[in-house]
Amino acid sequence: MIVTSAHPEKTQWCEDSGADLIINHKTQNVNHAIKQFVPQGVDVYWDATNHPEIECALNAIAQRGRIIIMAGPQHQTTLMVGPFYTKNCSIYGFTVSDATIDELHTYASQIDYWLGRGVLRGKVALRLPLSRAAEAHQLDESGSLVGKIILSPEWE
């Protein structure tokens, strides 16, 4: 697995989680680093940033690869059709909010399966009571936390 990160704590977490290559996207050329590590390109390029770089994805993807985009709904980009179709690749948009109840059940079951076996590990940054939900939103939006916030009912 190849990941990009410029945040020291996130980089360390990725390393501890078994990333094969960590690229600092602020100080390194992402495409060059990927090509050095995987000359044929990557099979899956997953971009969960608010500003996906389609050109970077198309440069990094292998023949018949898949690009997954999870950008904000307001993001606009330009698709370079030539590299897209000559690589015979696919681009998928993904949002959980459009999933059916059956799909959500399947996803939850798969995630539970992998969490139970230690393959997936979540990074918890903070635990707060539900009464502090507004504060949790502010902290999450600040970008200052590394990991997820867990809100719990007061009685737990």
Rank of each mutant, 00 (worst) to 15 (best):
V81G: 02
Q63A: 08
E15N: 10
A33D: 00
A62M: 09
T4F: 00
S5Y: 07
K35W: 03
V42M: 03
I91T: 04
A48T: 05
N31I: 05
V124N: 01
R132V: 01
L120C: 13
A19M: 08
F37C: 01
H7T: 12
Q12S: 14
H75I: 00
G93N: 11
I150Y: 06
A33T: 01
Y113W: 06
V81W: 10
H75W: 10
A136H: 05
N50W: 10
H7K: 14
E135P: 02
H137R: 09
W13M: 14
P153H: 10
N59S: 11
E15A: 11
V30M: 04
A136Q: 06
A125N: 12
V42R: 00
A57E: 04
Q110E: 11
I68M: 05
R121Q: 14
I23P: 03
G82Q: 08
D43V: 01
Y107W: 13
I111P: 01
R66C: 03
T106S: 10
G72R: 12
H137M: 08
G65T: 02
G118R: 12
V119S: 02
W155T: 14
V119H: 02
Y107H: 13
A108R: 15
Y45T: 00
K123E: 03
A125G: 12
I34W: 00
T100H: 13
P8K: 14
Q40Y: 09
G118T: 10
H32I: 08
Y92C: 13
L58Q: 02
T78N: 08
N59Q: 14
A134T: 15
D47S: 00
P73Y: 09
N29Q: 08
N88Y: 10
I68F: 02
V96Q: 15
G122Q: 07
H25C: 06
D16C: 08
H51A: 04
A108D: 13
Y92D: 15
W114G: 02
N24S: 09
L21P: 07
S152R: 15
G147V: 09
K123L: 07
A6D: 13
D102P: 07
D43G: 02
T77F: 11
V42F: 03
Q63K: 09
H7Q: 10
V124G: 00
L58F: 06
R64P: 00
L151P: 06
V42E: 01
C89V: 04
L58D: 06
P73W: 04
S5V: 05
H75G: 01
Q138M: 01
A136W: 06
L130V: 06
H32W: 03
H25L: 09
L115K: 13
Y45S: 00
D112E: 14
G93L: 11
Q110K: 10
F94V: 05
Q28A: 06
V38F: 03
P8R: 13
R121S: 11
D102W: 06
H7P: 02
S90C: 04
V30N: 00
T11I: 15
R127T: 12
I111Q: 09
I22K: 02
A134N: 13
G122I: 03
L115P: 09
D20S: 07
